[in-house]
Amino acid sequence: MRKAVLLALFSLGFISCVSVKNLPQNPSPYISKIDLVKGVKQEGERIVPVPFKGKIGENPVIFLILKNAEGKNRVKFRLYAGKTLREEYEISFGKPGEYYSRVIIWQGLKARKKGTYTLAIFLNESLLAIKKFRIEGLRQGP
């Protein structure tokens, strides 16, 4: 097995016979995890999302893990009820020249009424991701 792997790697090198000077490097931040949760809690040094039990409830929290970020950044959340903009939130993080392999961001959203919502997430004015969700209705009081 080991011989076969070595042979395969050797063959790959033989086929190429060209050195690649300019190897691809990921230059852009990307979302590794995105979720709508009930809240966020701290467990020791870790920040842990608290998931909904069942359907998404009112006023959820958007929880996201951003990877590969560098320098000063601005994250903007635009919340749409149906097709109309309802709320806008903004979070800034980072210092110039610093590299962040993993950034945890969360933001509470004002979404109480029953309906379909769209959340557009921008990083430095460039759209990064969108998240669609549905709120089933107001919580029934006791």
């Binding site: 790697l9 790959l12 090198g13 086929i15 190429s16 060209v18 050195s19 690649v20 190897l23 691809p24």
Partner: peptide, 13 residues
């Protein structure tokens, strides 16, 4: 740049 089981292999043009 190929990766096999997460490890980088020999680059190819």
């Amino acid at each position: 740049q190929p990766y096999v089981l997460g490890a980088p292999s020999i680059p190819l043009s």
